[in-house]
């Protein structure tokens, strides 16, 4: 019943636009776009576990730390290039995520939030304290990604690494969420009990949602590490986890494109407010509040509402 061809063409068109755009943009904007993409990957993980599956997670910063530090350490200590290092770290994060998900057996709501918060705090202290491995508070240099003998360090070069990966992941997750797995996740959010009566292993699927969020968080973290070139445990704390939740709320928290929209807002808008100097923070916070109040369902929701209004004869909404 799904029209397969049209969405596919749209994806193709999107990819073409994304690949062509940097040729007409400045290095600075391309760098920013790359950061938006890596942030969006981390946010995508949260969309799955917190948005679709309804499990509060304040652990996303911990997973991105596993990805960033994991890949950087594999590269510095074992010479593993990032294109293997990041997937390896992501697998590790996925396993960790699965473990964390199992902890949700007896926990819900704010207790789960606290346990995920604890994970972030513990990982952060571990990174700070294990100095011989991670450099501790002094930070860790991320070795540049080298492909075919060439070091990819400019915003421009890294864009062509991060954005295609983001594209592939978004495409993959999109299809995944439209499949049976996505429906199970959505059912988790709406009624665990109903799922249980259907004989579905609720705990396994919750853990799976966490595992996916962990893997995505790690990929995003690893890629962003390549972009920022320097890792500091300070940047992987509870506040950072909370910011990622705010990103998906602004984007529209079950919405997959919302992850990109929210990331774009958080990366771009503060810069546009530069004119307010020291008052920039207040203006930004007020803007966030306005967005929350005016756009229930986030920016993606607002987009949907706008589109619906423009096409009153559209078929039944999903």
């Amino acid at each position: 019943m799904r029209r397969v061809r049209r969405p596919f063409l749209w994806w193709l068109a999107l990819l073409a636009v994304l690949m062509a755009w940097p040729l007409v943009a400045s290095e600075y904007r391309v760098f920013q776009a790359g950061v938006i993409a890596s942030t969006a990957i981390m946010a995508l993980g949260l969309v799955i576990v917190t948005g679709v599956a309804g499990q509060v997670s304040l652990a996303q910063a911990a997973f991105s730390a596993i990805g960033a530090y994991g890949a950087a350490l594999l590269a510095t200590k074992l010479g593993v290039p990032a294109y293997f290092g990041i997937p390896l770290a992501a697998a590790l994060a996925g396993v960790a995520g699965y473990g964390l998900g199992l902890a949700s057996l007896r926990l819900g709501g704010h207790y789960l939030a606290l346990v995920t918060m604890a994970m972030t705090a513990i990982v952060q202290v571990g990174l700070t304290h294990w100095e011989t491995l991670t450099g501790g508070a002094l930070g860790l240099m991320v070795p540049p990604l080298t492909v075919a003998g060439k070091e990819l360090t400019s915003g421009f070069a890294l864009y062509y690494v991060v954005v295609p990966v983001a594209f592939a992941l978004f495409l993959g997750v999109s299809n995944l969420m439209a499949s049976r797995l996505g429906r199970v996740f959505a059912a988790l959010r709406q009624s665990e009990v109903a799922l249980q009566t259907l004989g579905i292993n609720v705990l396994h699927y919750k853990a799976l949602a966490f595992a996916l969020s962990g893997a995505l968080g790690a990929v995003g973290g690893g890629l962003q590490g390549l972009q920022t070139t320097f890792l500091d445990p300070h940047g992987f704390g509870i506040i950072e986890s909370v910011v990622l939740v705010a990103v998906i709320i602004i984007g529209g928290f079950r919405s997959i494109p919302g992850a990109v929209l929210g990331s774009a807002v958080f990366v771009l808008i503060p810069e546009l407010l530069g004119g307010f100097q020291a008052y920039k923070g207040v203006v930004w916070a007020v803007l966030l509040l306005l967005m929350i109040v005016l756009f229930p369902g986030g920016l993606a929701g607002a987009g949907a509402a706008l589109a619906a209004r423009l096409r009153p004869n559209a078929g039944a909404a999903r």
């Binding site: 909370v242 705010a246 709320i249 923070g281 207040v282 930004w284 916070a285 007020v286 966030l288 509040l289």
Partner: peptide
């Protein structure tokens, strides 16, 4: 998250 934004506004203000 809205309460978070309120907190942020207060802090930055």
């Amino acid at each position: 998250i809205a309460t978070l934004a309120v907190g942020l506004a207060i802090r930055e203000g």
